[in-house]
Design a protein around this nucleic acid. Sequence first.
DNA 1: CGGCCCTAATTT
DNA 2: AAATTAGGGCCG
Length: 249
Amino acid sequence: MVFVAILAVGFLVTKGPQDLPLPQHEQFEIPEYGEDEDIVRHLAYTASYNHGTLVPDWVAWRLTKAWMCAEEVQNNGHFSFRRDPDVRDPKASREDYSRSGWDKGHMAPRADMKWNLKALEESYYFTNICPQDHKMNSSAWRKIEDLCRQMAYRYDLVYIVCGPIFTDHRHGTIGEACVQVPDAFFKAVAVEIDGALHTVGFIVDNSPQTYSPRHYAVTVDSVERVIGRNLFPRADEAAEATIDWKIWK
DNA sequence: CGGCCCTAATTT
DNA sequence: AAATTAGGGCCG
């Protein structure tokens, strides 16, 4: 099962999702994007890297129960954030974040990628990293990630897309490369249950946030209005305009 | 407590 | 640029 899943994702990476005769849900998590965006496809996530902000505009991935139940790969217990070899300059690097006071926050979480060594290593590329408040990252944001994993375990497959929100750029930039520090972050989650699509969105300020997911929950529809982008192009509008709390509790 | 999110200093 | 070593906060 896991092997089949890995093959399926590997096939997507090789061929590129948009020209594949696959069912709609095979590329469901990929948001709408323009021709000018720098789209990077890795084994377990797809991102749009912004060479102006030096962070991704969005990162999209999926999480399956099969991957979560798979045997964890070894990472030698160390963390190796790296520049993404598949992304052109300018791009962020370690030195920009070092002693900046901001976390190197994963968009697609490390914990979602432990089923495959390549997936795990690629999650440490700066393509997948944003400057995040430490308390927010390890508390409020983490609880939302926990919720997503819980949903994957319960419903077999979840689609996730998240990224930074820039409003007044109140945190400025870090490092020599001037990596822009986001004002907030969004996350949109979708799951199909008995043929019906359910979605929920979150917007969390990039400050010491510690509340539970529900406190930050908004409709995917309203997230789309804030960031000005259609996140689940194949979802119908009704599914993006409501939150079913029986599902997400 | 373990799992998850990380940091910094040092060495290669 | 990357690996090694040592360490901390949050949460269920």
